[in-house]
Design a binder for these strands. Structure first.
Lengths: 159, 159
DNA sequence: GAATTCTTACTCGGATAGGTCGTGTCCGAGTTGCTCCGG
DNA sequence: CCGGAGCAACTCGGACACGACCTATCCGAGTAAGAATTC
């Protein structure tokens, strides 16, 4: 089970957008992070569809966060990219084979599915505890000037 | 992020093997669960490599659990199939691009990676809390006779 | 009757094709900012 | 000097190939049980 690589880029973009009030084009974000511009655009579109950021068209357009960074959790970003479905999908094995349990006895999920679902909820709960603002704060704590430098670079004209 | 479908089969097999002291062939387990026999063999090989079950060759061979069901956690099974690597892999985006942070400033993982790693640990911790014996007990609690019926079926000669 | 040898059938194990989803890319629709022209 | 129209450039958005991993499969190596044979 491997998480999509786009999640990492999406999270970095959200943190970076904290440092800029003006819209930032996808190409600029891709250059800053050293990733493929066309592929990053795909992730940003997903974030836009999820309502986390808003796209502004036109000459000085780009992406802007729709809410305060304190209102966006890491889980929001992960689910925007990966979807909200559980990582485990039960195929109801107990209802198959020669000793299949009757369907009326399978109203509740089996213990295996319950365990996997509980672990999935624990994973999502941990991601829900952290907001983009927390991440920005931790980055600033590490290097107080890096976010302002990034904000200035995002606004500077591209050569 | 989707979990491999083989995990479900592997867990069911572990629970079922609790009801049989004698080795059970892979083909018999596949028939019981209504899944592809050759594909299930692949999962059982992985469990065997991980040391969770032991393979017995020869005429009345098959697979047997190597430890008590109370000593096998769901995490053991999941990691045997999916591997132990974290679901999130950090590509060190902060060290790329025009504003890359110097390498000596990146000894510790970035806040994003820390968050994802923490969620991964929470997921694994939840899976570690449940043992195969717990699953067997929950199944028996639901239908006390089903495990003994399965045990008898596993020993009965195949037509 | 007991030990031994042989056959036989059954088991696992790794190496081998196909399908699906993530990865990476491209070009078109739409909008905004700027420039030029006229009053 | 001011207003408006036109242009041009830049933006996002969805549709299109490529590749890797999961899924599914096959056949060969090895082993234990059982039967037949011999002493």
């Amino acid at each position: 089970m491997r998480l999509s690589g786009g999640v990492e880029s999406a999270l970095h973009c959200c943190v970076v957008l904290t440092a800029s009030a003006a819209p930032v084009p996808a190409a600029r974000l891709a250059e800053l992070h050293g990733v493929s511009a066309t592929y990053l655009a795909k992730q940003l579109q997903a974030l836009s569809r999820a309502g986390l950021m808003q796209s502004v068209q036109g000459k000085s357009g780009g992406y802007v966060l729709t809410r305060s960074a304190t209102e966006i959790t890491v889980l929001d970003v992960v689910e925007a990219i990966e979807g909200t479905r559980s990582t485990f999908i039960c195929t109801e094995i107990r209802q198959r084979g020669p000793l299949a349990r009757p369907q009326e006895a399978c109203a509740a999920p089996c213990p295996i599915a319950r365990t996997m679902y509980a672990a999935d909820r624990a994973w999502r709960a941990a991601l829900r505890e952290v907001t983009i603002a927390d991440l920005s704060g931790a980055v600033g704590e590490y290097d107080g000037g890096v976010l302002s430098r990034i904000g200035a670079w995002l606004l500077s004209p591209q050569p």
